[in-house]
């Protein structure tokens, strides 16, 4: 039996240990916010945080996450109460069709939490593993920058 902490809640999985993490999240736990775009770790739409590190959940067998803490987009906020990063995306046009958005949000969350730079050049590196076909990335970068500024303002 595999034990995971998903979005702060302890969950168990009794299926095949090599089931992909994305399938466990989407099909067993009903967390469909995590998206599959390519199934080979190229597009990053399935990005989640495993013990704080941004990883492609389509490449990770669930057994590899045994005992780990997994965070998905569902942990960041709700439509009624968006998180700061989500607010930034809403205000600056960071989401268009929205399919890459959960992965983008998780990559950016992992990056900022580890103390990664919040300037445009650093952020372009931070999300280089997440493909977006709609935005040309500029508004995504603006969104993250704006959310960080917003948070700093709130702290003052």
């Amino acid at each position: 039996m595999i034990k995971l902490k998903v979005n702060g809640r302890t969950r168990t999985f009794k299926g095949a240990p090599f089931t992909r993490l994305i399938d466990v999240l989407r099909e067993e736990l009903g967390l469909t916010g995590t998206k599959e775009g390519c199934g080979e770790g190229e597009c990053g739409a399935c990005t989640v945080l495993v013990d704080g590190a941004a990883v492609c959940s389509c490449l990770i067998p669930v057994c590899q996450a045994d005992g780990a803490s997994v965070e998905t987009v569902e942990s960041l906020g709700t439509p009624e109460k968006l998180g700061a990063l989500q607010e930034g995306f809403l205000k600056e046009g960071g989401a268009q069709c929205g399919i890459c958005t959960p992965g983008m949000l998780m990559s950016a969350t992992g990056w900022l939490r580890r103390g990664g730079g919040a300037d445009a050049a650093s952020l372009r590196c931070a999300i280089a593993g997440n493909l977006c076909r709609c935005t040309g990335y500029q508004h995504i970068i603006d969104s993250v920058v704006s959310s960080v500024k917003g948070r700093k303002r709130a702290r003052r």
Binding site: E74, T78, P79, L82, L90, G93, A95
Partner: peptide
């Protein structure tokens, strides 16, 4: 603000596979 934005930003928007 993009009307369907909050659903897309929280994983609530349902694409066909969802």
């Amino acid at each position: 603000l993009r009307k369907e934005g909050p659903e897309k930003l929280t994983g609530r928007a349902l694409y066909i596979d969802d």
